[in-house]
């Protein structure tokens, strides 16, 4: 069963719409609460990333009996060095941004720790694709 959500860059107020919808669906299917929580946290982090960094994006959600697969594709600046971005604490944020409590360099690592599988591919100047898979058992 698949769903699609559109997401706009800069639209902070609506970030989280896909996470909330996914939460409801997984509850309806009867997925274990801790797995729902992990999935929602990873997806929310990814949603916010699009809002902050990209121009716009699409979220495709595919749920079957064993797993949920989420693919977030955005049009945006892309990530030059994915390996470094996956490291805890690595951040491109300026000191000013950090002072305000953002850009701690935990976005991708946090996503990773809440996903059974996380695949990030990116092309600088074009956009980033994030794929999150979580299994129900």
């Amino acid at each position: 069963m698949d769903f699609e959500y559109k997401i706009e860059g800069d639209d902070f107020t609506n970030a989280g719409a896909a996470s909330s919808a996914v939460k409801k669906m997984l509850n309806q299917v009867g997925v274990r609460p801790d797995i729902i929580k992990r999935t929602v946290v990873a997806l929310y982090e990814a949603e916010v990333n699009i809002v902050v960094h990209a121009y716009r994006g699409t979220i495709k959600i595919d749920i079957d009996e064993e797993k949920i697969h989420i693919r977030l594709e955005d049009e945006g600046p892309g990530i030059p060095d994915i390996d470094r971005a996956m490291q805890k604490g690595y951040s491109t944020a300026t000191p000013r941004v950090r002072e305000m409590g953002f850009g701690a360099g935990m976005g991708l690592p946090n996503m990773k720790s809440n996903a059974d599988s996380l695949v990030v591919t990116s092309e600088v100047g074009k956009g980033t694709t994030v794929e999150i898979t979580n299994y129900f058992n």
């Binding site: 669906m25 309806q28 009867g30 009996e65």
Partner: peptide, 14 residues
């Protein structure tokens, strides 16, 4: 919210 105890039936119902 759970639609059925059986996950595949719940999937179909959802």
């Amino acid at each position: 919210d759970k639609l059925d105890d059986n996950i595949s039936i719940a999937m179909r119902k959802m």
